[in-house]
């Protein structure tokens, strides 16, 4: 993850324009974050931490897998089926870029003389 400057150029392209719809979503961002920290994570852990139903989580995983941001590996431990999720290098990059853009957005809101801030209703 690259460093964020404290005073972004207000005339530069708005960080929102670079947001990736696949990643810029609360649950999918959560999946990528957990998979990044955990190296690999099991389906059940994700379901518990993100408070999702199995079907809902599967849909999100499918979106991320289609975008080649994660790899899904199914197997057995004893008789119990287990599904492991691993972040791909593209997923790591996408997560880093998303966090960078979120930080830029926050920094942009916090510039006192930013014209956008003046237009915001109080």
């Amino acid at each position: 993850m690259t460093a964020v400057t404290d005073t972004p150029d207000p005339h530069a392209a708005h960080p929102v324009t670079g947001l990736d719809d696949v990643v810029h979503q609360r649950v999918r961002l959560g999946i990528l974050t957990i998979a990044h920290e955990a190296r690999r994570v099991e389906f059940g852990y994700l379901r518990t931490q993100l408070d999702l139903t199995a079907g809902n989580l599967s849909k999100h995983l499918s979106v991320l897998e289609t975008a080649a941001l994660i790899e899904i590996e199914k197997g057995y431990e004893g008789r119990r089926g287990r599904t492991w999720i691993t972040l791909t290098p593209a997923g790591t990059t996408a997560l880093a870029e998303e966090i960078e853009r979120l930080k830029l957005l926050i920094a942009r809101f916090e510039i006192p003389d930013n014209p956008e801030n003046r237009r915001r209703p109080h």
Partner: peptide, 15 residues
């Protein structure tokens, strides 16, 4: 975005 970033940090810490 603050909430999203805060969620990211909370999840990372929990892991």
């Amino acid at each position: 975005p603050r909430r999203l970033l805060s969620d990211v940090r909370t999840l990372a810490h929990r892991v």
